[in-house]
Design a protein around this nucleic acid. Structure first.
Lengths: 203, 203
DNA sequence: CCCTTTCTTCACCGGCTGATGAAGAACACG
DNA sequence: CGTGTTCTTCATCAGCCGGTGAAGAAAGGG
């Protein structure tokens, strides 16, 4: 698909680490576009200009490749970190929405997108996504609030994050999909803020 | 899996219509559990106690079966209808959430669940779900509101519906998954109401 | 009773999937 | 130069997939 060294025959062509990175990058792209189940190893290899067997040579199994693809330390945690350290509690709603959208806009090859695509039809991805959300979002939000109903409030934020992610990046529902980040922050920031610190609906 | 006439050999065993209905029901269950791509015709046939070829005999293709499975006239439209005719505008948020949850709680074999499971890894299901949401929800909400930003407000409700559906029925995130309908209505009713009729976040 | 239609089973096809094993080519080092 | 390690290709495997065609058994209609 891309440039492909025309010299044929077996042997060492590239540095190895380069091939591994190329596979990884292509895998993130395709997993993010079609999910785990609907992405074939052969498709990844072809798009990366590499023999399918190389994928198994470097990552052993398809699951191993997927695990490596969603493992992006050093890029995701800092973004999330800035939510909690970047300002006061009155504007945390806006920060959540803005951080989410800005990170997901610049590339759909995010762990959150890959997992959200895969989870609905893959039990293992479902478990991974649940862990991811609990660890990175729910627990930290709940700890930050400290109120008795903190867990439920954090869960409401999860619903916002999931809904926004699915609507904008998975389903591409208009006008959410093509709205500007600023517009969505204006709309959903207060909503998330209300989930976290607004008065509960008295029953 | 279920009762299976032990008499073997080819020939007419059941009324035909009965087999068709049995296949359809089983298909709805499995499509609702694993989505289109991860559900095989063979698995449906086996769970229905039927030869795989019968599926193709009745529904021609796997797509045909899926189309028949999500086509449930007479059960979905009335439920949605009650949202718009069952009360005034001040409580429409609660009605949306309550109707959604009650209908999806009583069976996961709803078109909305099947499509939401399938869409992330199947382009055709994605298009169908987008059509479904536009036709059954967005357009009617937007028409009901009539405000200049009606489309955006309706889209915000879509985010709530999608987020709620994914969190409770697909990902089963706690405590959303096991909360009572009343609790969720208390929490999300006002939220949806705010999306529709609340003051816009002035920019 | 035959004959047609409807339902059901079985055998099978080509194609694709994830995965394996062997063997060859490029390089690194002594 | 020889040797061993790392990378790459190729051929191939068993298994499952959606889908087809033929043929047999149960009914219904004349």
């Amino acid at each position: 698909m891309t440039e492909h060294d025309t010299r044929s025959g077996p042997g060492r062509w590239r540095s190895g680490a380069e091939s591994k990175q190329r596979i990884l990058q292509t895998a993130r792209e395709l997993f993010g576009q079609h999910g785990y189940g609907a992405t074939t190893v052969r498709a990844i290899a072809a798009a990366a200009g590499v023999d399918p067997a190389m994928v198994f040579y470097f990552f052993k199994t398809k699951q191993g490749l997927f695990s490596a693809a969603i493992d992006m330390p050093g890029t995701v945690p800092p973004a999330i970190e800035s939510i909690f350290t970047g300002g006061d509690l009155d504007t945390v709603g806006e920060r959540i929405v803005r951080t989410l959208l800005e990170n997901l806009d610049k590339s759909g090859r995010t762990p959150l997108v890959m997992l959200t695509r895969s989870a609905p039809s893959d039990a293992q991805s479902e478990a991974l996504l649940r862990e991811f959300i609990d660890r990175e979002i729910t627990d930290r939000l709940a700890a930050m609030l400290g109120t008795p109903d903190a867990a439920l409030r954090a869960a409401m934020v999860n619903v916002q994050i999931l809904g926004l992610t699915v609507a904008r990046y998975i389903m591409r529902i208009e006008p959410i999909a093509s709205a500007s980040v600023d517009d969505l922050v204006d709309r959903f920031g207060p909503l998330v803020q209300y989930c976290l610190t607004g008065q509960p609906a008295s029953s």
